[in-house]
């Protein structure tokens, strides 16, 4: 369990990193929190010739309010910082709800927002949340910058729209408070494991409790997190009552075509994917903005 030979660079500026990326492209790997990259290198499942460590670049780690009420988060922001941020709780409570499900706090201390998105494990929480929140990603290369929507970012199992020469620098999360409700559910074999299957939801309700817009994402049930169009359409205009929630769950199970592995069968992921959606919807109807608790320390 020792990595193959590689050259190591530790650029101190973004431009320097982009230049290195431009030079080495496919042969290079960005090192962020290292929580996914290092195990893969140690098992020699990936063998980059060059590792570009972006931990010493200033300006990549921040949580900043945007003028439109949304949130900008730097790619190198540690997952633990999101978990402890009052601003995130106020602006994107779904993200606050989901983060504690990532591994254990030790992993979240190192793991970054950008690393999770670039790695794009199909069962990862941050990608699912970003897809649900219609997040935008800023990708930079020595040639310039471009913005990609979440729906266009996740392409396939561990594959994103990132080009080998590109760095993910920032994500932008639109505001979803006010009459929005949120829910997040997952089932895993042990606390801290990647989910066997899970669901995230946002419901925009009018004053009478009628659903103006429903967003439903499943994760761990395909190559990428997926928005569940049929269930979303079904729920909009409904009161999201028990029957509606069950029907949405059924529509989700019907739409899923997951794979089997040693931890769960395809059938399990399909059936329980629906259950997770139903429970996330129930949770969303109960969701209230919570006061931020500075001392709270989820494990």
């Amino acid at each position: 369990m020792k990595p193959a030979r590689f050259d190591y660079y530790s650029p101190s500026s973004r431009d320097e990193a982009l230049e290195l990326l431009g030079q080495y492209g496919d042969d290079a790997k960005i090192l962020a929190g290292g929580q996914s990259l290092m195990p893969m290198m140690n098992m020699r499942l990936v063998r980059p010739k060059v590792v570009i460590d972006i931990n010493r670049i200033a300006g990549l780690s921040h949580i900043t309010p945007r003028r439109d009420g949304g949130l900008a988060v730097g790619a190198m922001t540690r997952q633990r910082e999101l978990e402890r941020s009052a601003l995130v709780l106020e602006t994107a409570p779904l993200l606050s709800l989901a983060i504690p499900y990532i591994g254990h706090f030790q992993i979240r201390n190192r793991g970054t927002v950008g690393g999770s998105l670039a790695h794009s494990d199909p069962a990862a929480e941050i990608p699912a949340v970003c897809l649900t929140l219609d997040t935008e990603f800023e990708l930079a290369s020595s040639g310039g910058e471009r913005t990609v929507k979440a729906e266009d970012f996740f392409l396939n199992h561990l594959t994103t729209a990132l080009e080998p020469v590109e760095l993910l620098t920032e994500i932008r999360i639109p505001q979803t408070v006010g009459n929005w409700r949120w829910g997040f559910q997952e089932v895993c074999r042990r606390d801290g494991d990647f989910a066997l299957v899970g669901a995230a939801t946002m419901l925009h309700l009018d004053d009478k409790g009628i659903c103006l817009e429903a967003r439903i994402t499943t994760f761990g049930a395909g190559g990428t997190p997926m928005r569940m169009d049929a269930a979303e359409e079904y729920l909009s205009g409904s009161s999201v009552n028990a029957d509606d929630r069950s029907e949405a769950a059924r529509l989700v199970s019907d739409a899923l075509d997951p794979i089997s592995d040693i931890h769960a069968s395809a059938k399990y992921r399909q059936d329980v994917g629906g259950v997770m959606v139903r429970r996330a919807l129930e949770q969303a109807l109960l969701a209230q903005a919570l006061p931020f608790n500075e001392g709270e320390d989820a494990a």
Partner: peptide, 11 residues
């Protein structure tokens, strides 16, 4: 007794 196994038995 994995979750998947239990659900399979139940179904």
């Amino acid at each position: 007794l994995s979750p998947s196994f239990i659900v399979k038995l139940l179904s």
